[in-house]
Design a protein around this nucleic acid. Structure first.
Length: 530
DNA sequence: CCCAGCACGC
DNA sequence: GACGTACGTGCTGGGT
């Protein structure tokens, strides 16, 4: 009897607990053999992520820390990573056995340590109701993948290449010499030494000239080369990071792109995505948006995109219990306009674009714990005006200021802050005498509960939606998560049912003092649906 | 091979 | 006087 035939009934038995380190990986390997792992999961990597979200969670490290034991490194079996790295299949059975058994032993020992710690720290519900059940959901989304229309991408490629070459030529003429525009060092020397665009130019810590977008924007009026450089940078980024890289990641077996969702990287509880990162596909800039047209549904399908509207600001309203902010959300008015009306003391119908823009920046800044200096930099206004704006903000929403102070106080006293669902973030620098370290910790004390609660909520929605997809025998697939947005490859006949279900599960995932509003769109590519 | 600087997303 | 908005991934250049 083959091993798989022996293992299958155990792995597929829903009443047998599965303990592992990075179980999503095992689920994917077993899925290749048509084994569907069922039953409750306990993943030591995820457990440690909940216990110490800022740390790394690989098994050898955990073993060294918690078991004072250094397991065999995989490299000693299959060699260093690189071209010559061998496959697990090439490892002699005797060695493989030792490795596999040790791996299982260490994992079980770690579980015995982490499980009581999870319980002791009040993390059990977050663990057993959200993080562990999410593992197979992410595994399925990864296997689902998404189709990339390479012909559509090719169309973009030619235009980009041409424009980059002509920009390159124009830049060389304007600079009076050729240089590597992609080298910040060379570019800085051209702009600030050769062309003398700013005699007070700021330097990076490695004493190069800063040439980032913010600095260049301010210089744009001084010389035509600056805009060309900005455009060149943007187009190069699109070409190298997306247009040229994405087609290389199409899986030969499925013909689709399969990202990895990492559940144990972001210290706030968010997911991250890599190989490729499908959470940073361009959308703001007109030229970049074109790339989204290349993400398409399977024949007979249509994309449904559903996203939480202003979830972080709604969480600020909920967590702070600020009466005015709650009222602004309940009114159904545009929140940034409502904020502007309060800050500037005008009727909401008299709010100008400029006022709304400032209020919007202030709203974002508040979530991130911004200072008056930060806000003045961002809005390109004076320190005084920025301070007045912030004072106006706190007068409008006094509960928000109190909440921010309370968050910092909680961090000082407990050493950590928590999300709505008990996720912790330790802020060890909150007492630091180093201003920068302490400031950082204080901003995290404000941001982590908000960003983290939003992450908790969308994870709950994803689990419930996945359950409904199964129980309702939908053929539609959940394929992507982008922090506050879920994307589905929808069988067209299921669209109405699916949309209704998705919106209900997303808005019902948590009960706040303000509604959890969900916006949605559909389309024959990701740009249309967004 | 690693880090810095930069740019994309939320 | 310096610092100054959270969380990520990935590219290129440039030094080792």
């Amino acid at each position: 009897m083959k091993f798989l035939d022996l293992a299958r009934p155990l792995l597929e038995n829903p009443s047998i607990l599965k303990i592992g380190q990075n179980i999503k990986f095992d689920i994917q390997v077993l899925a290749n053999y048509d084994i569907e792992v069922k039953g409750t999961l306990f993943d030591t990597m995820i457990a440690h992520y909940l216990l110490e979200p800022d740390m790394r969670h690989n098994m050898n490290l955990l073993s060294e820390i918690y078991l004072s034991y250094s397991p065999v490194h995989i490299e000693s079996l299959i060699g260093e990573k690189g071209n010559s790295q061998k496959n697990m299949r090439s490892v002699p059975d005797e060695k493989l056995k030792e490795y596999a058994v040790e791996d299982a032993d260490v994992t079980l020992q770690l579980k015995e340590i982490f499980e009581p710690k999870i319980r002791a720290e009040g993390l059990e519900p977050l663990s057993s109701k959200i993080e562990m059940p999410l593992i197979p959901v992410l595994a399925l989304m990864e296997r689902n993948g998404v189709i990339l229309d390479t012909e559509e991408l090719k169309k973009i490629t030619y235009g980009l290449r041409e424009d980059i070459i002509s920009l390159e030529k124009e830049i060389y003429v304007l600079a009076g010499m050729e240089f590597n525009i992609s080298s910040p060092k060379q570019l800085g020397d051209i702009l600030f030494i050769r062309l003398k665009l700013d005699d007070k130019a700021r330097l990076t810590k490695t004493r190069q000239f800063i040439t980032n977008e913010e600095i260049l924007q301010r210089l744009a009026h001084k010389h035509p080369i600056v805009d060309k450089v900005l455009e060149y940078r943007g187009l190069k980024k699109l070409l190298s990071t997306y247009v040229e890289a994405l087609p290389q990641l199409i899986d030969a077996r499925t013909g689709r792109i399969h990202t990895s969702f990492n559940q144990a990287v972001a210290a706030t509880g968010r997911l991250s995505s890599n190989n490729p990162n499908l959470q940073n596909i361009p959308v703001r800039d007109e030229r970049g948006r074109e790339i989204r047209k290349a993400f398409v549904p399977a024949p007979g399908c249509i994309f449904l995109s559903a996203d939480y509207s202003q979830i972080e600001l709604r969480l600020m309203a909920h967590l702070s219990k600020d009466k005015n902010m709650i009222a602004d959300f309940l009114s159904g008015n545009d929140i940034h306009a409502a904020t502007a009306a309060k800050i500037f003391g005008v009727d909401i119908k008299d709010v100008t674009r400029e006022m709304r823009g400032k209020a919007k920046t202030a709203n974002f800044g508040i979530i991130y714990g911004i200072s008056s200096f930060g806000l003045s930099e961002r809005l390109n206004i004076g320190r005084k005006e920025a301070k007045d704006l912030i004072d106006g903000y706190f007068n409008s929403y006094p509960g928000v200021k109190i909440y921010m102070e309370k968050s910092i106080k909680k961090a000082r006293e407990a050493g950590y802050v928590t999300t709505m669902f008990g996720r912790r973030r330790y802020l060890r620098d909150i007492q630091s005498r180093n201003q920068m370290a302490r400031g950082n910790a204080e901003r995290n004390a404000i941001n982590a509960p908000i960003q983290g609660s939003a992450a908790d909520i969308i994870k709950i929605a994803m689990i419930r939606i996945n359950d409904k997809l199964k129980s309702g025998s939908f053929k539609s697939k959940m394929i992507l998560q982008v922090h506050d947005e879920l994307i589905f490859e929808t069988v067209e006949s299921e669209l109405d049912n699916l949309r209704e279900m998705v919106i209900a599960e997303m808005s019902g995932a948590a009960s706040l003092d303000v509604p959890l509003k969900v916006d949605w769109g559909t389309g024959k590519n990701w740009l249309e649906a967004h």
